[in-house]
Simulated scan of single mutants.
Amino acid sequence: MSSDDSSAAQEIDAIIANAGGWRAATLAQLRRVILSADGEIVEEIKWRKPSKPEGVATWVCQGNICMADLLKSAVRLTFPKGARLDDPTSLFNTRLDSATVRAIDYLEDSPVDDASLRRLITQAVAANRGG
């Protein structure tokens, strides 16, 4: 792990800690699933702006795989190439009208289907690798 990787991981740790409650627990679980899907996935912080100085937790492998946003009532996992992915268990529940992007909003009582999410992540990595 490079110092940049370590720094991003620490910043994502801080995002999780600052979220608190169910959103922190959900984001921590999503992170574990994402990182377990492929050993080459790295964490980055992107899109820092005055209204969001902490940036956006992003997982990358030869391009963006997905990014997490903390909303008031949801943890949103957005896949830039989501429309290209096979989603037989219908995890995607928002951004369905986009030609490219798909997202999953996890609400307070939403279960995380680890196996189905891991399959989506694996597909997203393959799409980035040109598969």
Rank of each mutant, 00 (worst) to 15 (best):
D4I: 08
S6V: 09
S6E: 13
A8K: 07
A8C: 06
A9Q: 13
I15C: 00
I15P: 00
I15T: 02
I15Q: 05
I16K: 04
N18E: 15
A19L: 11
A19V: 04
G21W: 13
W22M: 05
A24P: 07
A24L: 06
A24S: 14
A25C: 01
A25I: 00
T26Y: 02
L27G: 09
A28I: 01
L30R: 08
R31E: 11
R31K: 13
R32H: 10
R32Y: 00
V33H: 07
V33R: 07
V33E: 07
I34M: 08
S36V: 09
G39L: 04
E40K: 12
E40C: 01
E44C: 06
I45C: 05
W47S: 11
R48F: 04
R48S: 02
R48E: 03
K49N: 14
K49H: 15
P50N: 11
K52Y: 10
E54I: 01
T58G: 05
W59L: 02
W59H: 12
V60C: 04
C61W: 03
C61A: 15
C61M: 04
Q62C: 03
G63T: 03
G63P: 07
I65H: 08
I65S: 06
C66F: 10
M67F: 15
M67G: 14
A68N: 04
A68P: 02
L70V: 12
L70G: 06
S73T: 14
S73P: 00
R76P: 00
K81Q: 14
G82N: 06
A83W: 00
R84K: 14
P88L: 08
S90H: 15
D97F: 02
R102C: 06
A103N: 09
I104F: 12
S110R: 03
V112Y: 09
A115K: 12
A115F: 03
S116K: 03
S116F: 04
L117S: 11
L117V: 05
R118S: 15
R118W: 00
R119Y: 03
Q123V: 03
V125R: 01
A127I: 14
N128A: 03
R129K: 15
G130D: 01
G130A: 01
G131Y: 00
G131L: 01
